[in-house]
Design a protein around this nucleic acid. Structure first.
Lengths: 158, 158
DNA sequence: TATATTCGTTTGTGCTACATACTATTCGTG
DNA sequence: CACGAATAGTATGTAGCACAAACGAATATA
């Protein structure tokens, strides 16, 4: 239970309680979840001034790169379901970052576009995200990082 | 008909939309989040018969391996805060899996123990988790997996 | 044309995170 | 020893996210 257990124990003031993990810390799922938690916390802290979550930022990113994209396409590309994407877009629209425009060629669709405010926010976010990324990727050599990304993509295959 | 868990997966498969990612998919944080999402969905599906989340299972696991452990210690070891751990323990206690016992040596503490029902559930969960793990770890050679786990622990360092 | 599917939407439930504040208890230091 | 600081648990409130189920409108397909 070396790794993060001691770090957290230090954070709570109590020194390592010598917990028995019985293999839990050797599970891939456990390690992925811990890594995601660590990056998520740093992400939220990094973008606190912009008040964006990971998914909100990723959504702005994709809309910015694909103006007119539909909600389901963004949802599918990010591994989310459309109901969740709905409320996410609702919030981004409410904050004036995104516009919904009914498609003329397929009137079921909502075409998504960034407002100027959304573009500005996305640009600022990209800067913050780059710094956030650097804090973690700096821990690896380039070849290690490439292997890590490749492995994570293999895990994410569904 | 709306099939159970594969709704998201099918949507991803349906996507011949060729989205422009503009570097998003090259970000470590994005890959970690996607990997976590994929494993989380499979975990929930795998343990649907037991109705346990990742954190609930991990909590049962740690209590089972460390009878009498305190709430903050479990929370710290799993990277959660104590308020969240409270409601998590509340639920496990309500379902008859966990017992709180005031410590005699430090009366601030609640010592956590598994009930027989909790032990049974944990045993079943470990079997399901092993199968779930195998579905993902089977994608890697042993050396690749070791490198992946090592890298993820490095990411999780805080 | 009849049927199935897709997209957006709404509603509801549940888990998680985090902040804040409060009590009871224990610890550390003067 | 006393007192303030720290700790453990608790309660409350806000928020984001996941997922299920259902619906109407539009479109695709047989």
């Amino acid at each position: 239970m070396p790794e993060s257990a001691s770090a957290v124990a230090r954070k709570t003031g109590t020194e390592a309680e010598e917990l028995e993990f019985e293999g839990l810390s050797g599970l891939l799922g456990y390690c992925v979840r811990r890594a995601q938690g660590a990056m998520h916390r740093d992400f939220v802290a990094s973008l606190s001034s912009l008040d964006l979550t990971q998914k909100q930022a990723a959504t702005l990113w994709l809309i910015g790169a694909n103006p007119g994209v539909s909600q389901v396409t963004v949802a599918g590309s990010l591994g989310m379901d459309r109901a969740t994407m709905m409320s996410l877009i609702d919030r981004l629209e409410q904050r004036g970052f995104v516009l919904r425009k009914r498609s003329t060629s397929d009137r079921r669709r909502q075409e998504l576009h960034l407002t100027p405010a959304g573009q500005t926010t996305l640009r600022k976010a990209k800067t913050k995200i780059a710094e956030h990324e650097r804090r973690f990727t700096a821990r690896f050599k380039q070849s290690e990082l490439a292997a890590l990304l490749s492995a994570l993509r293999k895990v994410a295959e569904e």
